[in-house]
Amino acid sequence: MIKVLFFAQLKDVLGTGQLEIDEPINDVAALRRTLQARGELWSEYLSAQRALVAVNQTIAHEDTRIGPNDEVAFFPPVTGG
C-alpha cells in the first residue's frame, strides 16, 4: 500500500489531503498517470508541469522508484520564506 499526500492548492482542489493506493506501482510516472486518470481536475493539477513530487519526504523525479509502504506527496511549487 502506497500512502499518497496532497498539499496546499492540490489538497483544496482535489478535496482530499491523503489517500491510499493498493495496486502495484513502480515509479512516480506510473503513480502520476494512475492518479490523473481519476478525473479532469486530477489530470490537470497533477501534471508534471504543475505538481512536484516527494518520495519518503525527499524531492523525487519521474523515474524515482516507488515500493509498498512508501509515502508519496504531490504539491505545487513552494512559496515559503
Binding site: A8, Q9, A54, I59, P76, P77, V78, G80
Partner: peptide, 26 residues
C-alpha cells in the same frame, strides 16, 4: 539558504482578501 529555501522547502503561503483565501504563486 534563503535562496534555496524559497524553491526547495515545502512551505506554501496563502492570503485572504474579501473573505477568500488565495494560494500565492512562486
Amino acid at each position: 539558504i534563503m535562496d534555496q529555501l524559497k524553491t526547495c522547502v515545502p512551505l506554501w503561503k496563502k492570503e485572504r482578501s474579501n473573505g477568500q483565501w488565495h494560494w500565492t504563486a512562486q
